[in-house]
Simulated assay, not measured.
Amino acid sequence: MKTLIVYYSYTHNNEVLANVLQEKLKCDIFKIEEVKKRNAFAIMLDLVFNRIPKIKPRLFDVGSYDRYIFVAPIWAGKIASPLKTFLVEERFYISDYSFITICGGQTDQKEKLVTNLTKILGHEPSLVQELSINNLLSGDKKNTMKYTSSYRIQSDDMIKFNVAIDDFLRGGKASDARERKAG
């Protein structure tokens, strides 16, 4: 199965994640780059007006892959708009796909992500996984936008996510079993 990792990263947190995935899978990787440099104000405008920014063209055949892993941040409960642009432009080629993110980890966000991805691509993802920055923060810094949004992932931080990443790459079987046992 030929896999492509497609990622967008504003703060480089999700770039670190994409590179870890690529190293584990030894597959192709593609970084989404915008035509214009992004800032926090542009992010807000994208969210308020549901804009999708222009991204640089791809110089390869997106349709030549069997499986796609998308990696991007979550902005106000929504997939980062540069990834949304890619998904809209390439939706007819994308069949088997999963999504993973390093994010603040808001409650009930995963269901919204599944709904959002399904709306864009016309079918549900195989798996959606959130790796919460809150798991890297200490006591009073947890669940605080100031700290979750300003946190910058280091390669060493990824060790704390190894089990979740490996589970994601196996298709979420271990987490499904844990959820059934807990329920």
Rank of each mutant, 00 (worst) to 15 (best):
D46Y: 10
D46M: 12
L47K: 14
L47F: 13
V48H: 07
V48E: 13
V48G: 02
F49D: 04
F49A: 00
F49R: 08
F49W: 09
F49V: 08
F49C: 10
N50R: 15
N50F: 10
N50C: 15
R51N: 15
R51I: 09
R51A: 12
I52W: 08
I52L: 08
P53W: 05
P53F: 11
I55S: 02
P57Q: 05
P57M: 14
P57W: 05
P57I: 06
P57D: 13
P57G: 10
R58L: 14
L59V: 14
L59K: 14
F60N: 11
D61N: 13
D61V: 02
D61I: 08
V62E: 00
V62D: 04
S64V: 12
S64L: 06
S64M: 13
D66K: 04
D66H: 03
D66A: 07
D66E: 08
Y68E: 01
Y68R: 05
I69K: 04
F70L: 03
F70Q: 05
V71L: 10
A72R: 07
P73R: 10
P73S: 09
P73L: 13
P73G: 15
P73H: 13
I74W: 01
I74V: 02
I74H: 06
I74Q: 01
W75Y: 06
W75V: 11
W75M: 08
A76V: 13
A76D: 08
A76M: 03
G77C: 05
G77N: 00
K78H: 03
I79E: 03
A80L: 05
A80F: 14
S81I: 07
S81D: 09
P82A: 04
P82K: 10
P82T: 14
L83S: 10
L83N: 06
L83Y: 00
L83M: 15
L83K: 00
K84C: 10
K84S: 08
K84A: 11
T85K: 12
T85R: 08
F86C: 04
F86N: 09
F86Y: 01
L87T: 00
L87R: 08
V88Y: 13
E89Q: 15
E89N: 13
E90M: 13
E90S: 15
E90L: 12
R91S: 09
F92A: 15
Y93Q: 12
I94Y: 01
I94W: 00
D96L: 07
D96P: 06
D96Y: 06
D96W: 06
Y97L: 00
F99A: 00
F99Q: 10
I100W: 03
I100K: 02
I100G: 02
I100P: 02
T101A: 14
T101G: 06
T101L: 03
I102Y: 01
I102K: 05
I102W: 02
C103M: 10
C103Y: 09
G104H: 05
G105D: 07
G105A: 08
Q106N: 13
T107Q: 11
Q109D: 09
Q109G: 09
Q109S: 11
K110A: 11
K110Y: 08
K110M: 14
E111K: 00
E111P: 01
E111G: 12
K112T: 05
K112N: 01
K112A: 03
L113Q: 03
L113C: 12
L113K: 03
V114S: 02
T115D: 14
N116V: 11
N116G: 15
L117M: 04
T118C: 02
T118M: 09
T118W: 09
T118N: 04
K119S: 02
I120N: 14
I120E: 14
L121D: 03
G122N: 07
G122K: 10
